[in-house]
Design a protein around this nucleic acid. Structure first.
Length: 881
RNA sequence: GGGCGCAUAGCUCAGCGGUAGAGCGCUGCCCUUACAAGGCAGAUGUCACUGGUUCGAUCCCAGUUGCGCCCACCA
């Protein structure tokens, strides 16, 4: 903790012990949330102290793009990360949740270029320096938007440690890693076929290419003449201008006579060789393939095997550069023009036919990718990827849920070298300088560039994921040996989507292991699914089902959104969300609000020691017993990132057990007053105190408002996380279970009889000698039973679990309704009797089933028999209709 | 082409060898002095299909069908 939370001006008690009556009857989130958040920040609750002696707990945020705004996916992951850090902070850890943003090279550059285009300008018009200046300005203007949204969500991040992938410290980290890897030849320059986006005008890596099935046309073209001819098939006819061979399978007898021969390439004055290559599939098409080494990765490989020349015929914008009639045509125009010309020459042997094939598109702008031969920088991933795989394989890093680790392995075990250079202007410039004599110098962060004529820096920048990959340690000060780095690295858990395993997770693993001497960047990886709409459909602009989380937060409160997201968070699975569900969560928050308000009005308190169990009623002991169990249950779920289950457990415990049953059962105790009331008031205070603390990480705002009011203390943010008291009371739990059963049964009877819920009915309770004797008053109150008068004649008797309840309905009983209900129940009980009987007569079952299961079946049979007897008695007692 | 996952109430999803669960929705009654954003009671399922293992299968195994996702150098 920082000085803010220690003794000091901020430590005074807020005037938070408002009289309960002052609390409005409905929770109004919008009014309190932002105020509470700013108070937390001002008090420094979220600031981590590297010098503290508490055990550290660290999460670095997946840095959102500066260009972006908060979408539901962020809100979802942030809710989980916030809950994890808030809980650990309450558990006494030095919890650091480190925020920041990613410069998002290509995405941001595109955005600013779009803006320029609206002004009729291009980045070239501005020049590199002015353009990057403009991007920085843009970042200043819009980049902080998402940070404001994070505050709205309640993200308890340490704002004093906010980082940006392009800030100075992170740039030093980038340069340091680059130089070290360059010197160790893990980074190298090579000319290869890369994925080129003719619109973004840059290379992109394999995973930045989205493949879609596109309708293309497969045309078959005859190369050469007569005996010396061969038919090839292609979907990219325009690349034929760059063909430097035709390849056939070496064993393909159809073409044996051509191997080693040269044939005429149509539309050109060139002859190209026919080469044998085992990678040609004789079954596909004609079994002969045109080879364009400069414009196709496979062809490039064939070219290398046969020392074929590479002939570039398309420029960076996808325009034909080959001399001749097609020069200057766009690749798609050239395609039609060339097919037309070939047809005219009678070289199209089979008419072109529709052909669906997978075509790569730029993931940033959807432009069709053009494979292109060019000189780029690469990371040699072999040893790094192996280490990244091993760290998970040997258990140093755990992936949750475990079955998604196969996706991780699939990637790291088959990784190709990573193209890291981008022909962009926005990003970390490659720290390599070229001299006039062909010198190549890679510089570290403190080294001065060479001076003198003819020296120039590489013009490319690094893939944005290069700096993201350093995030877990660069944000903590690396390469400096900072206190933060020593204290908070490695981080405890990475919370991110399974869709980003390749882009980010694997790369952080590689870089972390490499730069931090084999220490993986996190202990656990908690993978989340994607947020989808209420029908499980992907949210996308084209569907029109995208929701701005701010809208829902404004309407229902941040807590409601957070609780909804947490409730849907089953590890690694997608989360559907709809407005109705957020409403339901808002209702839950309101329920918490009102239940606490009621409790305060009835004297619930946290003051003084908890009374001895001997002084408590059964319901007091029951709810405390359940409370302890819930604490342990919730802790278990946190350990496995089971947010849906812990939310569900808390929801039902709070609403069903505490708010419905316990609160209702204690009403008569409170009315009666006395010592019993004091005991229950203290118990209710205890239950709410613990419950609000348990709920706080998920719904921080409403719990803060209520907890400070309830306890008069500073803030639940810095309260202790509840510990299971260990108190359990099995008899009390059973007693309350019977009580619930009796009450429910009578209520059902009343409902069936059409009695108004408020209508008082003379009733007689035979409770003496049963465990429920002490509950008579509560039962009478809940069931609206009046004392029976002189002329009481029972017309209905409901024996449940040994308790008999008789009601005098003054002859007004609806016999038909009651007979119908009883007959139905009788049928069910008889069925149960048959089924359990069959089981217990089954020798195999008795021999092999575990004892507790057999006992359970026996108990069920006994219960069924009792039910039958009881129901039959009741049926007999009914007046004839 | 390779790999993975899913099929459970009207909808969205939990569960998982031993009496089918939740939320929302639905039906009926109720503005009961905490809450109508609420209370009480209730209805609703060949747990995709076919076989197998088992005393017992929604759950395990095999196959079928239908969806979804990931990977791949589909000329």
């Amino acid at each position: 903790m920082t000085e803010n939370t220690q003794q000091g001006p901020h430590n005074h008690h807020e005037p938070s012990t408002a009289a309960p009556a002052d609390l409005p009857t409905q929770y109004a989130p919008a009014e309190v949330e932002s105020e509470l958040y700013e108070r937390w920040v001002a008090r420094g609750y979220f600031e981590a102290d590297a010098k503290s002696d508490k055990p550290p707990y660290t999460i670095v945020i997946p840095p959102p793009n500066v260009t972006g705004s908060l979408h539901l996916g962020h809100a979802f992951q942030h809710t989980l990360m916030d809950a994890l850090t808030r809980r650990k902070r309450m558990q006494g850890h030095e919890a650091l949740w480190l925020p920041g943003m990613d410069h998002a090279g290509i995405a941001t550059q595109n955005k600013v270029e779009q803006q320029l285009a609206e002004e009729g300008k291009s980045r070239q018009d501005l020049g590199r320096a002015e353009f990057t200046e403009r991007v920085w300005q843009w970042k200043e203007d819009y980049g902080g938007r998402i940070l404001g949204q994070m505050r709205r969500l309640g993200d308890g991040v340490d704002w004093t440690r906010e980082r940006f992938t392009m800030d100075e410290g992170l740039s030093r980290a980038v340069q340091t890693v680059f130089k070290r890897m360059h010197d160790e030849e893990l980074i190298y320059q090579a000319e290869r076929i890369i994925n080129w986006c003719p619109r973004c005008l840059t290379a992109i890596s394999d995973i930045e290419v989205d493949y879609q099935d596109d309708e293309g046309e497969l045309v078959s073209i005859r190369y050469g003449e007569g005996e010396h001819s061969v038919v090839v098939a292609t979907t990219r006819a325009e690349t034929m201008l760059g063909d430097t061979a035709v390849a056939v399978h070496p064993d393909d007898e159809r073409y044996a006579h051509l191997i080693g021969q040269r044939i005429k390439l149509p539309l050109t004055d060139r002859d190209i060789p026919v080469v044998p290559d085992v990678h040609v599939n004789p079954e596909f098409g004609t079994g002969a393939v045109k080879v364009t080494p400069a414009h196709d990765p496979n062809d490039f490989a064939i070219g290398q095997r046969h020392q074929l020349p590479t002939l570039t015929v398309l420029d960076e914008r996808g325009v034909i550069t080959a001399h001749g009639p097609y020069e200057g045509l766009d690749r798609f125009e050239a395609r039609s023009a060339i097919v037309a010309a070939l047809r005219e020459q009678g070289r199209i042997v089979a008419e072109k036919r529709p052909y669906t094939h997978s075509v790569g598109h730029c993931s940033r702008c959807s432009t069709t990718i053009e494979p292109r031969l060019s000189l780029q920088w690469w990371v040699s991933v072999g040893p790094l990827a192996r280490a990244a795989g091993d760290a998970v394989r040997d258990g140093r890093v755990e992936i949750h849920p475990a079955d998604l680790s196969s996706r991780y392995f699939e990637w790291v075990d088959n990784m190709h070298d990573w193209c890291i250079s981008r022909q962009l202007w926005w990003g970390h410039r490659i720290p390599v300088w070229y001299g006039p004599e062909g010198e190549v110098v890679c510089l570290g962060p403190d080294e001065q560039p060479p001076t003198g004529e003819g020296w120039h820096q590489d013009t490319d920048v690094l893939d944005t994921w290069f700096s993201s990959g350093l995030w877990p340690f660069s944000t903590l000060g690396w390469p400096e040996e900072t206190a933060d780095l020593r204290r908070f690295y490695p981080t405890d858990v990475l919370v991110t989507g399974y869709d980003i395993i390749f882009f980010w997770v694997a790369r952080m693993m590689m870089f972390g292991l490499y730069a931090m001497d084999g220490t993986p960047p996190f202990r656990s990886i908690a993978l989340t699914g994607l947020v989808r709409d209420a029908h499980g459909k992907k949210m996308s602009k084209s569907f029109g089902n995208v929701v701005d989380p701010l809208d829902w937060m404004e309407a229902y409160g941040s807590d409601a959104l957070r609780f909804t997201l947490a409730s849907g968070a089953n590890p690694g699975t997608d989360v559907p969300i709809g407005e109705d569900w957020v409403k339901a969560s808002r209702n839950f928050a309101n329920k918490i609000w009102n239940a606490t308000r009621y409790a305060l009005m009835n004297g619930a308190t946290v003051r003084g020691p908890l009374p001895e169990p001997a002084e408590m009623t059964a319901e007091d002991r029951w709810i405390l017993s359940r409370l302890g169990a819930v604490v342990t249950e919730v802790d278990g779920y946190y350990d496995d990132f089971q947010f849906a289950r812990l939310s569900d457990a808390l929801y039902h415990f709070a609403w069903d057990e505490v708010f419905d049953w316990y609160v209702e059962l204690t009403k008569t105790t409170f009315q009666r007053g006395g010592r019993a009331a004091e005991v229950s008031q203290r118990v209710l205070g205890e239950v709410l105190d613990v419950l609000l603390r348990l709920l706080h990480p998920i719904v921080p705002f409403v719990t803060e408002s209520l907890w400070t009011t309830l306890t008069g203390r500073e803030s639940v943010v810095v309260a202790d996380w509840p510990v299971d008291s260990g108190f359990r009371d099995e008899p009390a739990e059973q007693e309350v279970a019977v009580l619930q059963q009796v009450i429910t049964e009578v209520r059902r009877f009343r409902a069936d009889q059409g009695l108004q819920p408020g209508q008082r009915v003379p009733g007689r309770l035979a409770l003496t000698g049963t465990p429920l004797a002490a509950h008579e008053e509560a039962i009478r109150s809940l069931l609206r039973l009046e004392p029976a008068g002189e002329d009481f004649t029972a017309t209905a008797a409901l024996p449940v679990a040994g308790v008999t309840v008789e009601l005098d309905l003054s002859g007004a009983i609806d016999v038909d309704a009651e007979r119908k209900r009883l007959t139905k129940d009788l049928g069910l009980a008889e069925k149960e009797l048959r089924q359990t009987g069959a089981k217990l007569e089954n020798a195999g079952f008795l021999a092999k089933a575990p004892e507790d299961v057999v006992d359970k079946i026996r108990a069920r049979r006994v219960a069924a028999q009792e039910d039958i007897t009881r129901i039959q008695e009741q049926l007999e007692r009914l007046p004839r209709g």
